[in-house]
Simulated assay, not measured.
Amino acid sequence: MEIKAPRVRLDPWSEGDLDLLRGMNAPELMEHLGGPETDEQVLKRHRRYVELSADRTGKGRMFRVVLLPGDGEAEQPVGTVGFWEQTWNGEAVYESGWGVLTAYHGRGIAPAATTAVVHEARTAGKHRFLHAFPSVDNAPSNAVCRKAGFTLRGEVDFEYPVGHPMRCNNWRLDLTAS
């Protein structure tokens, strides 16, 4: 039996995406990220996403993940995905992160969106590597990394958010490889 990947579109993050970000702040979605943020923190994150998406210098982009029509469903925003500059072990790289609303889990949306953002990071052409740092305990996000073509480099200690130490897997994808 062949499982068909969902069709998604990435739209640059905009002022109108605040309600989606609030939906992404659910306890079950923030479990591996230090827990839900305050509304003030969500507003700051929204502002950072809008600014990053307006930047055209290759620093990165944030996107709204839109599930395209299929199986009788209408087009709808279902999550977030993006990439941004980061320094890792003294090297300038991109880092990536994603999230999908709980009601849409298990449908292959996160791997499809992450694969699409890999293309965006390649197109930006500024850094060779794209990293992702999901918690070692976050099996679904680690599976997204595998499905999107990242290579596991090992476990690392990470602090996210500031003051919240966690053990993460360091996944890396070479953006210059075909």
Rank of each mutant, 00 (worst) to 15 (best):
G82W: 00
E31R: 15
A54L: 15
D55F: 06
T115V: 12
E85P: 11
V156D: 09
W98T: 02
L33K: 04
A103K: 12
W84K: 10
E73G: 11
V42M: 01
Q86G: 10
N170D: 15
Y49K: 08
C145R: 01
G79C: 06
W88N: 09
G58P: 02
T123P: 06
G125T: 08
H32Y: 14
G58Y: 01
N25V: 07
H46Y: 03
K59Q: 13
A116V: 04
W98S: 07
K126S: 12
V118R: 01
P134L: 04
G35D: 07
H46S: 04
P36W: 03
V156P: 04
T87Q: 15
P111I: 01
A116Y: 06
D157E: 15
H131M: 14
I109T: 02
H164V: 15
H32T: 05
G60W: 00
Q86C: 13
F83N: 02
G99R: 11
A121Q: 01
Q86Y: 15
H105T: 05
G35T: 05
T38I: 07
R45W: 11
G106K: 07
G108R: 04
T57R: 10
E40K: 12
F150I: 07
F133A: 11
K59N: 14
L29R: 01
P36K: 03
P140Q: 07
P27R: 09
L52C: 05
G99I: 03
D137R: 14
N138F: 03
P77H: 10
P36S: 12
R153T: 13
F158W: 10
L68H: 09
M30H: 05
G108Q: 04
K147D: 05
G35K: 04
R122L: 08
G97S: 13
L67Y: 00
R167S: 12
V136H: 11
R107H: 11
M62K: 10
A121P: 02
W171L: 03
E95P: 05
A110F: 06
H119T: 15
A148G: 03
V156L: 12
H32V: 00
T80D: 11
H127G: 03
E159C: 13
V65A: 02
K147L: 10
R64D: 01
H105C: 10
P161Q: 07
R61H: 10
G163A: 08
T87A: 14
V144S: 00
F83C: 02
R107T: 06
F133W: 09
P165T: 09
D39T: 07
C145H: 00
D39G: 07
L43K: 13
E91Y: 07
S135M: 06
F150C: 02
T87P: 04
E155Y: 11
V162K: 14
P140H: 08
D55E: 15
F158D: 10
T80P: 00
V162T: 14
Y49P: 01
C145Y: 00
R107N: 09
E40S: 12
D39H: 09
V136W: 08
F133I: 12
A139M: 12
A148H: 00
F129R: 08
G149T: 08
T38G: 05
G79S: 05
N170Y: 12
P140I: 08
P111L: 06
